[in-house]
Design a protein around this nucleic acid. Structure first.
Length: 847
RNA sequence: GGGCGCGUAGCUCAGCGGGAGAGCGCUCGCUUCACACGCGAGAGGUCGCAGGUUCGAACCCUGCCGCGCCCACCA
C-alpha cells in the first residue's frame, strides 16, 4: 500500500486490480462442495448474455448480490456465488450474422455446421468480456466454476428434461398458431412479443351472399388476409343477422363460398357486427376456426410474402398485397368505408418487426400441470418474493398460463433431441440406432435451458456434491421484466425435476432509468456504461451509488449518489489515516474494559454496536439503500464529525489506541460488503488484522458494549456544541476566537472540557459583561465575548431565537389546551409534550 | 380494458399516524496539526388537488389531475 502519510485519497485505479488479484488468489470466492444446502449459502447469478456488455442493471444486480454474498461469507457460512453466461439464442445469432453480412458472407452461405462453429469462435473471443466486467465491480463470484448454458454437462441436463417431459406427454408437436417473427424467421413465445400503438386503416368490405340476395359487410384492418378467409361470423344474439347464419357468402377476389357462422366472440357493438374469419392468420380467428372445424388456409408464407393461394397477389409482400387488395376491392365497388384506426399491434421484442401470426408446425410445452405447484410454492412461502407486491404478478401470470412454444428456427442453441425417419419420430438422449435418421432442425427457446440454471449448473441430473451443497440456492436477485420469462419457469422446472424450489427468496430489484426518466437503452442513446463510471469514480463508488439508489421503486440514475460513494471512500481513507498515523504501536488488540474507558469511547462503541446490528438486519431484509445510508451516516456523522474530533484533544495512549483500532476494524468490516476495495486496502494497514478482510469475520454484536448512559451524555455534548456553534456563526464571531464561558448545566458537568474545546470556549476567560446565555441540554452556557461579537448580528439572532421559541411554545400550549389531545393521546406523549413546554419556557427565560 | 406503482426543498430521492429529512446545488464563514473531493453555520417545502376518518394526517380512506411500468384476443 502507498505511503499513508502522503496519500490523501484512495486511488481506485491503482488499487482495484491488485486487490482483486489478491482475492482471486486467496481462493475465498470458491466454496468447497461440502455440507448441505441448508447449512451453506448460495446464489446463482442470472447468467448474462454471452455476447453482452455490462449494463447498469447488471451493475446494480451485481452489487446487490455481492453484498449478500460477502455478508454471508463474513458471517462464516460456506458461501458460493455460481457464475456463468447464457448462450442467448437469437441475440447471439443475430450479432454473428451481422458480422457475416459485413464480411459479404451469410449464415446460409456458410451452412449450419460452419455457422455454429463460427459462433463458438465468437464466443471464445468475446464471451469473457462480461465476466471481466463483473470482476471490475469486485463481484466475488466463483470464477473457477464458470458455466455456460451450452456446455457439455448443461446440454445433457437439457436433453434429460426434454425427454422426461416428452415421455409424460407435456411436450408435443403440433400445427398451431404461433407468433412468427419475420425478422429472425422464427417462431417466438408470447413473452417475447410487445404490443405497440399503431394507426392502421379499418376497412369495411362487402361480401355478397352466394344466392345474390344482398351482402354482409365486415370490418378489418388486414384486408389482405381475406384471401384465406374460411367463414364470416356474427354474434348469435345479433338480430340484424339472425336470418343469415348458416347461409353462404362469397369471399371477394377469391370466389370462394364460405358459411356465415354464429360465435359469442363477435362483438355486436364493434365495426359492422360481422367478422371475417381467417383461421390461418389471426389468433382469435384460429380459436374460432378450431371451435367450428373450419378449414385453415395459408395466404402468407414464412418469408412474409403472399403464397400461391393468393392467386394474382402471390409473391407480393404483405404490405404490397394490402394495397393491391384494397384497390381491387375499390374497383369492384365492394369497399364500403375506410377510416383511421389506432390500436395495438404485436411486434417482435428482438427484431422489432411486426409479428405475423401463422399456423406452423412447432414444439410446445403444456404448462397446466407444472404451474400449480409453482403457485403453491409462493402462496405457502417456500419461495418469498420481495417486494411482496410482485408476488401477485407472479401468481396471476401462472394462473393464466398457456402452452409455451419452445421451438425456434435458429441454428444457435440446443438442438431438439428429436430424430425423424419417414413417419417415425424418436426422442432420446442420443441419436437412435439404425440408418436414415435425421435430427430435428429446430433449437429450443433459450429460456428453456435458462429455466434449469440453478440445478443444471451444479451437475444435475447427477447427484453431485455440488447439488447437495448448494441446491436449493438461497436468493435469486433479478429485474422485474424476467419474473415470468425466467423466475416462474425456474420454479416450475425446479419443483418438477429436483422436487424442491430452486431458491427461497426472490429479490426483485428496481429499474435504473436514465437521468431524464427515459429507459436506459443503447438505441435511444440514454445508456450510461457502468465501466465508464467505475473508471471515473471507482468500483466502490459505483456500488455504493447504485445500492443507495435502490429503494423499492424505479429510480433515475443519479451521479450524485455515486459521488457520495466516492466521498465515503475518501472519508474512510482519511479517517483511517488519522487513526493509523496517531495510534501507539503495540497497542493491545483487545478493547479495554468499559470501566476504564472515557465516555466518548464508550459512546462510539455503543453506537457501533447498534449500527452493526442494523446493517446486518437491513441486508437480510433486502433494504440495501437504507443499509448504505446508515453506513454513510455513521462514518460521516458519528465517527468523523464527532468522535474523531472529540479524541483530538487527548493523548494517544495505549487504551485510546486500542479503542480507535477496534472501532476502525469494526467499521471496515461492516462497510466491506458495500465498498470492498477501499476497506480491504485499509484493513491491510490496520494493526490487529490478519489475512484478507474478504475472509474476515463480520463484527460480533456485543450487547455488553451498549451504553445508554454514555449515549445520553454525548448526545448532550453534541447538542450543546451545535447550539454554541450556531450562535457563534450568527453572532459573527471569528471561528478561531476563544471566548469566555460559564457552563451552568448539570448534564454537561462531567464533560465540560469536551464542550469547551469543541466550541472554542474557555472558563478562565469568563470575565466582564455577559454577552449571551445559550440554552443547552440541561441548562445554559453564558458567554463573555467582549468586542469579538457583532452586537447587531447578535441582537438580531436573539430576537429571531425568541420569536421561534415563542412560536413553539404557543404550539405546545395549544396542543395541551386541546382536551381531545390530553384525554385521547397516549399519556406518555402528553407527558412529553408538557416537559417540552417547560423546557421551552426555561429556554425563553434564559434568553 | 384490467393490475401495480409514483407525484415531498432548484435536482435526485428517503420518511408512510404525533415537532418536515439526506445527497447534490445555492449563501455565509474557515489553510481548526485525517480529509478544501474538506470543515462549520445557513437559506430553501400550504409534502399534486379536493373531500373524509382521527384529539392529531406527508403518512389511513374516497374522488380527481398528472406520470411510469406490467398484463390483455374487440376485427
Amino acid at each position: 500500500m502507498a505511503n499513508l502519510s502522503e496519500q490523501k485519497r484512495f486511488e481506485p485505479s491503482q488499487a482495484e486490480p491488485r486487490i482483486m488479484e489478491a482475492w482471486l488468489e486467496s481462493g475465498l470466492f470458491h466454496a468447497p462442495a461440502s455440507g448441505t444446502a441448508a447449512q451453506n449459502y448460495s446464489i446463482a447469478i442470472p447468467p448474462p448474455n454471452v455476447t453482452g456488455a455490462l449494463h447498469m442493471g447488471h451493475a446494480l444486480n451485481g452489487s446487490i448480490q455481492d453484498v449478500l454474498i460477502r455478508y454471508h461469507r463474513m458471517r462464516g457460512t460456506n458461501t458460493e456465488w455460481i457464475l456463468g453466461t447464457d448462450h442467448a439464442g437469437i441475440a447471439t445469432q443475430t450479432q454473428v450474422e451481422k458480422r457475416l453480412v459485413e464480411e459479404g458472407s451469410s449464415r446460409e452461405g456458410l451452412g449450419r455446421d460452419a455457422f455454429v462453429e463460427r459462433v463458438w469462435e465468437w464466443r471464445r473471443e468475446y464471451g469473457g468480456t462480461i465476466i471481466e466486467q463483473f470482476a471490475r465491480l469486485g463481484a466475488s463470484c466463483d470464477y473457477g466454476r464458470e458455466r455456460f448454458t451450452l456446455d457439455e454437462g448443461y446440454e445433457r441436463a437439457v436433453r434429460q428434461v426434454f425427454c422426461d417431459l416428452y415421455a409424460e406427454g407435456a411436450i408435443y408437436r403440433d400445427n398451431y398458431m404461433v407468433n412468427w417473427d419475420p425478422g429472425s424467421r422464427s417462431a417466438i413465445s408470447d413473452l417475447e412479443v410487445e404490443e405497440r400503438e399503431v394507426t392502421d386503416t379499418l376497412y369495411s368490405i362487402a361480401y355478397p351472399l352466394a344466392d345474390g340476395d344482398g351482402e354482409v359487410v365486415v370490418a378489418t384492418v388486414r384486408p389482405e388476409t381475406m384471401l384465406a378467409d374460411t367463414a364470416v361470423a356474427v354474434n348469435p344474439s345479433d338480430e340484424r343477422f339472425s336470418g343469415l347464419v348458416g347461409r353462404r357468402v362469397i369471399v371477394p377476389l377469391t370466389g370462394r363460398e364460405v358459411e356465415v357462422i354464429a360465435d359469442d366472440y363477435v362483438k355486436t357493438d364493434f365495426g359492422t357486427g360481422a367478422l371475417k374469419i381467417t383461421p390461418g392468420h389471426d389468433p382469435n380467428d384460429f380459436e374460432i376456426g378450431r371451435r367450428h372445424g373450419l378449414e385453415e388456409l395459408t395466404a402468407i408464407g414464412e418469408d412474409g410474402r403472399m403464397t400461391e393461394l393468393a392467386g394474382e397477389f402471390a409473391g407480393l409482400t404483405v404490405a404490397e398485397a394490402q394495397g393491391e387488395v384494397v384497390e381491387a376491392l375499390r374497383a369492384q365497388g365492394l369497399l364500403r368505408a375506410e377510416e383511421p384506426y389506432p390500436h395495438t399491434v404485436p411486434f417482435s421484442h428482438r427484431s422489432g418487426e411486426r409479428i405475423e401470426p401463422l399456423i406452423s408446425l412447432q414444439w410446445f410445452m403444456r404448462m397446466d400441470e407444472l404451474a400449480p405447484p409453482a403457485i403453491d410454492a409462493v402462496r405457502d412461502g417456500r419461495v418469498r418474493i420481495h417486494p411482496e407486491s410482485q408476488a401477485r404478478r407472479y401468481t396471476d401470470w401462472l394462473e393464466n398460463i398457456r402452452p409455451w412454444c419452445i421451438s425456434r428456427q435458429l441454428w444457435w442453441g440446443h438442438r431438439l433431441p428429436v430424430w425423424y425417419r419417414g413417419e417415425e419420430t424418436w426422442v432420446g438422449m442420443g441419436e437412435p440406432e439404425g440408418e436414415g435418421w435425421v435430427q430435428e432442425e429446430d433449437v429450443l427457446d433459450t429460456w428453456f435451458s435458462s429455466a434449469l440454471w440453478p440445478f443444471a449448473t451444479l451437475g444435475w441430473p447427477d447427484q453431485t456434491p455440488e447439488m447437495k451443497a448448494f441446491y436449493p440456492t438461497d436468493v435469486l436477485s433479478t429485474a422485474r421484466d424476467i419474473l415470468f420469462l425466467w423466475v416462474a419457469r425456474m420454479v416450475m422446472m425446479g419443483l418438477r425435476f429436483t422436487g424442491d424450489v430452486p431458491f427461497s427468496d426472490v429479490y426483485v430489484h428496481p429499474v435504473i432509468q436514465a437521468p431524464d426518466g427515459r429507459r436506459m437503452s443503447k438505441s435511444l442513446g440514454t445508456g450510461i456504461d457502468p465501466i465508464d463510471e467505475i473508471d471515473a469514480h471507482g468500483a466502490d463508488a459505483v456500488r455504493f451509488g447504485l445500492l443507495a439508489m435502490a429503494s423499492t421503486q424505479d429510480v433515475r440514475y443519479s451521479r450524485e449518489r455515486v459521488e457520495q460513494g466516492e466521498a465515503l471512500a475518501t472519508k474512510l481513507f482519511n479517517a483511517s489515516r488519522f487513526v493509523l498515523l496517531n495510534v501507539k504501536s503495540g497497542a493491545p488488540a483487545e478493547l479495554p474494559p468499559a470501566e476504564s474507558m472515557s465516555v466518548e469511547d464508550r459512546w462510539i462503541c455503543s453506537r457501533l454496536q447498534r449500527v452493526v446490528q442494523e446493517t446486518g438486519e437491513r441486508i437480510e431484509a433486502f433494504e440495501f439503500s437504507r443499509a448504505a445510508f446508515g453506513l454513510y451516516d455513521f462514518v460521516y456523522g458519528e465517527l468523523c464529525d464527532w468522535y474523531l474530533e472529540m479524541v483530538k484533544g487527548r493523548e494517544f495512549d495505549r487504551e485510546l489506541s486500542a479503542t480507535l483500532l477496534h472501532v476502525l476494524r469494526t467499521t471496515l468490516a461492516m462497510a466491506h460488503p458495500f465498498i470492498p476495495f477501499v476497506t480491504e486496502e485499509l484493513w491491510d494497514s490496520t494493526p490487529g488484522t490478519e489475512g484478507l478482510l474478504a475472509g474476515a469475520a463480520w463484527p460480533q454484536v456485543d450487547d455488553a458494549r451498549l451504553d445508554p448512559e454514555a449515549e445520553e451524555r454525548i448526545e448532550a455534548v453534541i447538542g450543546a456544541v451545535t447550539e454554541l456553534r450556531s450562535w457563534r456563526s450568527s453572532a459573527k464571531v471569528a471561528p478561531s476566537k476563544v471566548l469566555g464561558a460559564k457552563i451552568d448545566s448539570p448534564r454537561l458537568d462531567s464533560d465540560r472540557g469536551m464542550v469547551l474545546r469543541l466550541a472554542r470556549l474557555d472558563e478562565d476567560g469568563f470575565e466582564g459583561e455577559v454577552t449571551a446565555a445559550i440554552p443547552v441540554p440541561g441548562g445554559t452556557i453564558e458567554i463573555t465575548a467582549g468586542d469579538a461579537v457583532d452586537l447587531e448580528a447578535q441582537e438580531r439572532e436573539m430576537t429571531e431565537r425568541r420569536r421561534r421559541l415563542e412560536g413553539e411554545i404557543a404550539r405546545a400550549e395549544g396542543k395541551l389546551a386541546n382536551e381531545g389531545f390530553t384525554s385521547k393521546a397516549p399519556p406518555e406523549l402528553v407527558g412529553a409534550e408538557r416537559e417540552k413546554l417547560e423546557r421551552l419556557r426555561d429556554e425563553l427565560a434564559a434568553l
